[in-house]
Design a protein around this nucleic acid. Sequence first.
DNA 1: TTGTATGCGTTATCAC
DNA 2: GTGATAACGCATACAA
Lengths: 353, 353
Amino acid sequence: VADLSDRRTRPNLEQVARRAGVSRATVSRVVNGLATVDPDLRRRVEDAIGELGYVPNLAARSLVTRRTDTLALVVAEPDFRVFGDPFFSGIVRGVNLECQSAGLHMLLLMAQTSGDLGYIDAYLRTAPVDGVLLISEHAQDDPWPRSFARHGMPFVMGGRPVVDDPDVLYVDNDNVGGARSAAERLLDRGATRIGTVAGPRDMSAGVDRLTGFRAALGRRYRASRVEHSDFTMGGGEAATRRLLERCPDLDGLFVASDLMALGALRALADAGRRVPDDVAIVGFDDVEAAAMATPPLTTVRQETVLQGRAMVRLFLAHHRPGARRAAADGIPEITPDQRSVLLPVQLVERSSG
Amino acid sequence: VADLSDRRTRPNLEQVARRAGVSRATVSRVVNGLATVDPDLRRRVEDAIGELGYVPNLAARSLVTRRTDTLALVVAEPDFRVFGDPFFSGIVRGVNLECQSAGLHMLLLMAQTSGDLGYIDAYLRTAPVDGVLLISEHAQDDPWPRSFARHGMPFVMGGRPVVDDPDVLYVDNDNVGGARSAAERLLDRGATRIGTVAGPRDMSAGVDRLTGFRAALGRRYRASRVEHSDFTMGGGEAATRRLLERCPDLDGLFVASDLMALGALRALADAGRRVPDDVAIVGFDDVEAAAMATPPLTTVRQETVLQGRAMVRLFLAHHRPGARRAAADGIPEITPDQRSVLLPVQLVERSSG
DNA sequence: TTGTATGCGTTATCAC
DNA sequence: GTGATAACGCATACAA
């Protein structure tokens, strides 16, 4: 028995084989769990592995298998957003969680500045990675999906890409359904002149939430009661002012993000409208500040941790055909024939609307 | 010219060599920047690399070099803390930053539950990683440093380990100096009966901040004016109550963390003491809420991003003797003979004390 | 079921 | 300064 557990002098297959009195191939089969091994030999090999403290050399393995069992999670946002915004941190947590349970490593890449984008693009061509999970809100002119596809790098997107491409895998929250519930909530409360502060036209979350809103309102929908903005608090405030000016009789408002909704609350207060008595309001995202707002904001919650986990599972379904994974914890079973996953969202009822 | 840029059919050294009319060895030298190559040949090789879109195979490289150019960042905290607490997220950002500029990959591991600790320990023995950066606040009975040392896994700690071990590398903020400035600030404001809510005795941040406090007060220090607590808001509030009961004439208070200080503010308000008029108070950490508190909290800021960066640099200084890195951006130059780095902290003056 | 032999793409050690 | 050539540790096709 030599130097157990010192990584600088790791034993290799050869040494385990000698100790167990078998060939390298047999040890390899045991290590990889190929059932076709005599129970007796298997025992001897396992003993030898334990005694020597054998650990496979992953570099050697991936040299021959051409796999690294590592996924890169690329967040095309400045890092302070990644850690500050619960949307991103939830996804990171979910990806991390699911990678662990699938025996994968997670490489985290953050594109701080736009200059980093080129760097990361180049980096990913050499990175020891089997695939990429990409979260980017600038889906409009996003060059990455094309770049990945061109380089033959498997990838899964978080959020539906605006430009429709049947070859792109993605996991998204049910923005359409969530917006529909939000609008229906306003209708249920008796609002009849309902407007919306919508998100950007070049982001799928913006587009889809407007779609759901419109679907719920049906013929009560008025294009004049729509203002587009940029998912920021300041933008939401300004858009709400414009809306109030144009439609002073508004009695219901769906705001496509909580950040914008916080701005809307301010605009309404400034205009002397009471919430929810004069104007009922529903947001989207369920950020932490939503519950603290005055009045507490009714909103739509998306399970971002689940989204992260589903991204990993969608990747596995397509690029690890072998390992079939059962449904679990709110994630539906994902089969290789589906190119996307849509996760349910939930209305969180508070007093604002 | 064949299939540029498809990672499934990457060219290798051999093909580049053939195209450039040289040997594999020469190509390798060019790729690795070994100066001993004829400028002419170098040109031809570089051209071939560009034309073929050659990218080195990292698995093959690390098989022979026994390096992976990857660092694991292990955060022994539940992930919601990692992303919620600016202390951790700052370190993650710093490590990520410095890894990028050093051409290293960063593997992020979070130990959610205590069960994960064992998992991660086992995992790290097989992980394709050159070393570990460890952030753990439970430094007291922390088994990891010993485990790493035993396995021969190079590592750097964030924060000074409580149990003194000359072989352990670490990067810490100047807790002693910061606490000293805080106490001096209270003295300067004319406080004469100064107490402190100290941190846990089994965490170095707790110990060191008390040390600095005591040093600043000198013979004005009274053991009866010290209450230990647990770095949480509730704990800080309770400790402050106990302190006020025992020393009703307190006119200055150093609280060893902002979270505890927020609790202290509440306790003081409940007791009818005005801040800073009756009791001046200084915290530590400069969390976001400190500036928002009423009154805004004077506190000590630590540059956690810098701490993360310094951890990477300390690792490199010891385990990559070749590459000497110049000082930059507030990080002092780090030489292989120093086992630890102490980063300066800064008093942030606001109205609470 | 087991063993033998080959190749994965690189770096490193030699001669030249 | 350059080119053969031998490792590195593993998986796997094939032979037994």
